[in-house]
Design a protein around this nucleic acid. Structure first.
Length: 269
DNA sequence: TCCTTATGTACAA
DNA sequence: TGTACCTAAGGAC
């Protein structure tokens, strides 16, 4: 479930389980073997997240840079760690815990300078305390690109993925095809604040829930949603199902090679 | 057993 | 814009 909230939660859990003390580092699958050998036995002193990027700090200037991509998965467990399967790209283990990383787009050993370059090319992350929403709006306000595409652009805002994109636009009744330059400062302020709150809750619960209390299945007298992504949502992956608010069937479209979901009746502005 | 799908990104043309 | 990459689950046969 790799949107930004997943990565921040991952950073927290890595810090809880592995900071302080030696960490065994290995790459059963092999693609990270050389770096794993260099780091094996060192202490993981920092776990930092920016958008969908995770950085695990070892020694003075060594970082493991992880990006889950679309398929990457992480599994934590308590010691003793079972024999790894042959798809485990990275395993960290200590006396009490282990974590296995599979299928990431990126798992690489990088330097401080390379880490900084990644931060520099990413937009503000609503989950980071240093994030400046004005920096995101500065790009949005002069763009003719649709707000749906801008929200997915990690240079504009870091950490938002396809679920949060669809859901935040629905929550503010915004037409996904509206051009960035037609989004007002007041509208952006509200969207940013809402994203920050939704994503913080996502970190807490390790899942995405976006449905307001008055629209929950219990409040609306409908059956609870069952979806393997785990959360309760308005439009994401609800193609042709009735909108929770107005009953119109949810639309799907292809936008920049990703699925876009929205209610054509509620989101006309 | 094969095919499809997925919450993502980078690079080539 | 198209394609490659990484993995696993679910459904069709």
């Amino acid at each position: 479930m790799p949107e930004g909230h997943t990565i921040h939660r991952l950073a927290q859990d890595c810090a809880t389980r592995f900071s302080g003390g030696a960490t065994r580092v290995s790459s059963p699958q092999g693609k990270f073997s050389d770096a794993a050998t260099l780091l094996d036995g060192a202490e993981m002193h920092t776990a930092d997240a920016h958008g969908k990027h995770l950085f695990l700090g070892f020694r003075a200037t060594d970082w493991i840079h992880i990006h889950l991509g679309l398929f990457g998965k992480v599994a934590f467990g308590d010691a003793p760690a079972p024999p790894p399967t042959d798809t485990v790209r990275l395993r960290l283990a200590n006396a009490t815990s282990y974590v296995d990383l599979r299928g990431p787009t990126t798992c690489a050993l990088i330097t401080d300078a390379e880490k900084k370059a990644i931060h520099d090319r990413l937009g503000p992350d609503p989950l980071r305390p240093d994030a400046d929403p004005a920096a995101a709006y500065a790009r949005i306000r002069r763009s003719r690109t649709t707000i749906a595409a801008l929200l997915m652009d990690q240079k504009v805002i870091a950490g938002v993925g396809n679920v949060y994109r669809a859901e935040v636009l629905f929550r503010h009744r915004m037409d996904p095809y509206r051009q960035g330059r037609d989004v007002t400062p007041a509208e952006w302020d509200v969207i940013w604040a809402d994203l920050a709150e939704l994503m913080r809750e996502g970190v807490r619960n390790n899942r995405i829930d976006t449905v307001r209390p008055e629209h929950t299945p219990e409040a609306m007298g409908r059956p609870p949603r069952v979806d393997d992504h785990g959360g309760e949502v308005y439009v994401y992956r609800r193609t042709n199902q009735p909108c929770h608010i107005c009953g119109t069937r949810i639309s799907i479209a292809d936008l920049a090679a990703r699925n876009l979901f929205w209610c054509p009746d509620c989101q006309k502005n």
